[in-house]
Nucleic acid binder design. Structure first.
Lengths: 356, 356
DNA sequence: GACTGGCACTCCGAGTTGCCGAGTGCCAGG
DNA sequence: CCTGGCACTCGGCAACTCGGAGTGCCAGTC
């Protein structure tokens, strides 16, 4: 009866908003469906259960709430969560000790793989959800230097340092053999010639050089080119593009108390392609993003929520950090956490870059 | 009544052995408790269910079998599995394609962390259990060379190559600053001076050198020593000492169909200390080892089995490879798998060592 | 017109009962 | 020593009951 719609039709009555807000909060903390009676007893409304029932019925009609079954309380829908996050949520400040933990741990690492691994573990630990860190590609990665070290007869370790301080290393096996001195020379040559270029550009340039006349006669140059190409070649897909940590945190969540859903979820986490797709989509926008339920189709079952944020320098995002958990999670706590970690990573990377 | 014991009292009648064998095999493949009727119908015995019941009752009295409840079939006990493995099991040959897979994958990797990570994934995939690879310590690790590469103002990547071909690298942060040339010199000096020594020995020697008069006056030598010590210092606990892979394979095992046991198991896998203890114990003996149920106390619940083997050169085992799964697993398949992978790893390491 | 108490209705879940089938132990006979 | 037969036990399934929780709606009150 009582139409609780704004004149615009897309906004809720302030009372309805309060009710929705309270329901989300209560449901997140208890996991139960929320009844009119428990709302009334919460003391936040001076209303009887019957009145609240009217409001709730309206919210249900509008698609913000739903009933698991006839004689149960109400639970927020995707849409309910979405409205909550967009209009009702008050992000808490990140507690100081979490800030400290993040700063401390981040400052102690240097290699990129280490940092990303750490970040995902950190996220998982602090959020008690699954932590995700995604590094999409290194092709736009500009280099500062490239060094080659002899490791065995025809195995050479190649160390690439990015202008952003990121360090990548890999071992290449070459048919050619090199002496230490040759490698030293090559290191210097490449570092000087190619500093500031992206891996992609370097690769193209090296390939072009193969075709040039001069290269044919200079055997040293030939060797340099061959080694350079091999070094740049498949550095791109770093061993793990996607760092996932803390899948076991799912175990304690009540939404996974039955083994079937749990299994499905784990198997879904196994095949990372879908997650990569989802995260890649996040890469285009910057700032914090929250995906709820069917907004991201991770595992057909739409019981999940994702909080993510890009990191990297302002105009060139490097990748994504985020968490994945059940739809019913404390977004007001997760949001600042992910946001801060993203900032910390970005800062770290920028610092390393300036540092020389 | 019919005492089916050998004169020695510790051996079983040949019929009893056959029955036990069949029960283990059937139970492993089906997961069900085995009834006298199904044994009789298997066709391996020309006996009626009633006769088999007598044998089974004896086996139960002797502790090789047990009944989950009165009107259920029998299931092997720890002791039953132990007897099966020691006396009844015929190890199958490893199928050729698995041999090929292992050889191929192993031959494509070089860095130690890569190899170990790969091995654990490989084990998990081929066994459909949890794969474990453990590298206990690098202190007895003898080096062939040590190189230093400037990565940023005061960050230096240090690459240690072992005489066994193992490559370890880490980044050290130093208060001192070095030029490329200095680092080159230091690399050569250390590689020449210390080749063939263990990290432990190198460390001791460097520390001793600090105290010598000469060092006080030679600033280059001072720098060398400082850097050397930092490089050697905490290379020991490599980031992950224990590689665990495939915990999710537990999900599909019927013994973990209830969420509680599953949860306990995952949490137990989280804290790796206990596993490290167990594996360390395996290090002293060489050859394949199988631990069943209460023989290793992983997770108080004694439902697990471990198949493990040391790898490394003959007189100096480097670590352990193995799998962990429910007690009910195909030991006859797991044993050759773990064994072969252990051999492959050892061979790989030896080859790398010779190769120059 | 907004709020409230009351009442009938629905549905879940826990507990109870009864029953069937599977499997055993034991005994007596071949 | 083996076997068929019989009585016994137990787990699991299905049907049923019943109380509790929660809703929707209606009529009454301020």
């Amino acid at each position: 009866m009582t139409a609780r719609l704004d004149i615009h039709g897309d906004e809720l009555d302030s009372r309805a908003r309060e009710v929705l807000r309270e329901i989300v909060i209560q449901h997140v903390s208890t996991g139960e469906a929320i009844s009119s009676r428990s709302l009334s007893k919460s003391g936040r409304f001076n209303l009887s259960p019957a009145s609240l029932r009217n409001v709730m019925a309206d919210l249900e009609d509008l698609g913000y709430l739903q009933q698991p079954h006839t004689s149960a309380g109400r639970v927020p829908t995707d849409r309910g969560y979405r409205f909550f996050i967009d209009h009702l949520m008050k992000s808490r400040r990140l507690p100081q000790h979490e800030i400290d933990t993040i700063n401390e741990e981040v400052s102690h690492t240097t290699e990129i793989e280490e940092v990303l691994g750490l970040a995902s573990r950190l996220l998982s630990r602090l959020s008690d959800q699954v932590g995700m860190v995604f590094m999409p590609t290194l092709l736009q990665f500009t280099i500062r230097s490239m060094d080659f070290v002899l490791v065995a007869e025809n195995k050479i370790m190649c160390i690439i340092v990015g202008t952003n301080g990121v360090v990548v290393n890999k071992i290449v096996e070459s048919r050619l053999s090199f002496t230490r001195d040759e490698l030293d020379k090559i290191s210097r040559y490449i570092s000087v010639e190619f500093a500031g270029l992206t891996l992609d550009a370097i690769r193209r340039r090296l390939v072009r050089m193969t075709e040039q006349e001069r290269a044919l006669h200079d055997s040293m140059l030939q060797k340099t080119i061959a080694l350079g190409i091999e070094a740049v070649d498949d550095v791109t897909p770093v061993n793990h593009e996607l760092y996932l940590e803390g899948a076991e945190s799912m175990l304690t969540k009540r939404e996974f108390s039955d083994a079937g859903a749990l299994r499905k979820t784990f198997l879904a986490l196994q095949e990372k392609e879908k997650l990569v797709d989802i995260l890649n989509a996040c890469l285009v926008e910057d700032g914090l993003q929250i995906l709820i339920g069917s907004e991201s189709d991770f595992t057909n079952i739409h019981n999940f929520g994702i909080v993510a944020r890009s990191y990297g320098t302002h105009n060139a995002p490097l990748g994504i950090v985020g968490i994945l958990g059940p739809m019913r999670m404390e977004y007001s706590r997760m949001a600042p956490l992910v946001d801060y970690l993203g900032r910390a990573l970005s800062r770290k990377i920028e610092e390393e870059g300036e540092q020389r």
